[in-house]
């Protein structure tokens, strides 16, 4: 892999910005394929440095603190409300179809572990952390600090991406566990208040199999890896001065979120097929 030609403040947008709907879709496909190849490159290099070079533990811890600090409040609010929304909607539907809410909690726990907790956490992290990483790295590109790193024979992937990768992997899992707890709490309260389902009935782990736990954890790892890689790539491919940083940030949020959604499908399907 050669030095990325885009990693300088002077480059301009690679593709022209006109055309209608079909041009828009076509452009997205081509940019997507190119981008996917570059993202894969970033991923492979990060793994290489993970294996080969020394890791700066302080840098990782600093990043973990950043991630946690940025996201905890938003996550808690969102996942709390999701617990309430899910219980409300599922309860209503169950009342329509099978007027017996004793398994409401069980279904909730199953979906929470397997799907809701990791995916919602990841979507929120894609927003906060993805934007943060892209903005930091993007402004370093624009102020030529990335070039300066390269001139000192320091690979930005080793120096910048790797600590964020490790930190995000760890924090995604920790935050998912935290969110799970918050969501269970809000679910219990909602079930009690709206449907008079007692906490004892609600807290039902009978439907949570090992396969669900494995699926949930796999998602944590996959999302925790995808978000920093995708948003670092967006940051590193910033062009066009300080406005470019803003555009890189937006791209990071959108692309990280899309990555989560696509990965979600593949992991869920794989789990479904494997654990049938």
């Amino acid at each position: 892999m050669s030095a990325t030609p885009n990693a300088s403040a002077e480059t301009t947008s690679p593709l022209p910005e006109n055309g209608g709907l079909s041009a828009s879709i076509g452009r997205t496909v081509f940019e997507g394929l190119d981008g996917a190849r570059e993202i894969y490159g970033v991923f492979v290099r990060t793994l290489y440095y993970l294996a080969r070079a020394r890791t700066d533990r302080d840098a990782v811890i600093r990043q973990m603190y950043e991630i946690g600090n940025r996201s905890v409040f938003l996550l808690t609010v969102v996942i709390g409300f999701i617990g309430m929304i899910f219980v409300l909607q599922a309860g209503l539907q169950m009342q329509r179809v099978i007027p017996d809410l004793s398994m409401l909690g069980a279904s909730f726990m199953e979906l929470l572990v397997r799907e809701l907790a990791p995916t919602i956490v990841a979507l929120m992290l894609a927003t906060r952390v993805g934007a943060g990483i892209a903005a930091e790295i993007g402004s370093m590109v624009v102020t030529e600090q990335i070039d300066a790193l390269r001139m000192c024979a320091a690979d930005p992937i080793d120096y910048l991406v790797k600590p964020r990768f490790i930190a995000c992997l760890i924090m995604t899992t920790i935050l998912t566990l935290w969110s799970g707890g918050v969501s269970v709490a809000s679910g219990i309260v909602t079930a009690e208040v709206i449907f008079q389902v007692t906490p004892r009935t609600f807290w039902n782990l009978s439907l949570v199999h090992a396969s669900d736990v494995v699926t949930g954890l796999t998602k944590c790892v996959a999302y925790g890896a995808a978000i920093p890689i995708v948003s670092s790539h967006c940051g590193l491919s910033t062009f066009g001065g300080s406005e470019g940083v803003g555009s890189a940030t937006t791209r990071a949020v959108v692309q990280s979120s899309l990555a989560v959604i696509v990965l979600n499908f593949f992991i869920s399907s794989a789990a479904f097929i494997a654990f049938k």
Binding site: T143, E144, Q145, D147, A148, R150, M151, C152, A153
Partner: peptide, 13 residues
């Protein structure tokens, strides 16, 4: 690149 020293136009500190 270690053969070079470089001062960037905007310092890049």
């Amino acid at each position: 690149r270690l053969k070079f020293g470089m001062l960037f136009q905007n310092n890049a500190l």
